[in-house]
């Protein structure tokens, strides 16, 4: 069936199987491979994107469910060649190592700061509950989100 999804401000229409997962729509139909598949069971959050400004796990959504919606992926966080304050903060704070969880982590963190502009470190940690990182041990991720909050 046809789905039309606005991805990073661009309206994209594709004929897809209803069972196509949103993450595969983004990766395979839109060529946006910054959104990753980690666990497939809605635990790790590597596939997190935003729909209408809300972080969601794109491996647990069929693309058809996002029909007519506006999706933001990591590629759309900032204009080409520039960094969103969250990206800059992750860079400055060494909030990433292998980088695989990072896009999903940032997509959640951006909503976290939209909801709670001045979070405590504990609030940040709890806000990132749905995003797993196996490299950093999280400390520098929390540093990064704190730094991004300060940059606003």
């Amino acid at each position: 069936m046809n789905v039309s999804i606005t991805v990073n401000d661009q309206l994209l229409t594709h004929d897809v199987e209803p069972r196509l997962l949103l993450v595969h729509f983004l990766r395979d139909y839109c060529g946006l491979t910054g959104t990753h598949v980690g666990c497939e069971t809605s635990i790790c959050g590597a596939c997190t994107v935003q729909i209408g400004g809300k972080a969601v796990k794109s491996c647990t959504l069929f693309a058809v469910q996002a029909d007519g919606e506006s999706v933001l992926t990591v590629e759309g966080l900032a204009g080409e060649g520039t960094l969103h304050p969250m990206q800059q903060a992750f860079w400055d704070a060494h909030g990433l190592q292998c980088g695989y969880c990072t896009p999903g982590m940032m997509m959640t963190a951006v909503q976290l700061l939209a909801d709670t502009p001045r979070p405590t470190r504990e609030q940040i940690a709890h806000g990132l509950k749905g995003n797993l990182c196996r490299c950093t041990g999280y400390t520098k991720i929390i540093d990064a989100v704190e730094r991004a909050a300060g940059a606003k």
């Binding site: 910054g34 959104t35 990753h36 598949v37 980088g99 695989y100």
Partner: peptide, 10 residues
């Protein structure tokens, strides 16, 4: 890595 334009195998 931050911009989502790195290339992993998948």
């Amino acid at each position: 890595l931050l911009q989502g334009i790195a290339t992993y195998v998948d």
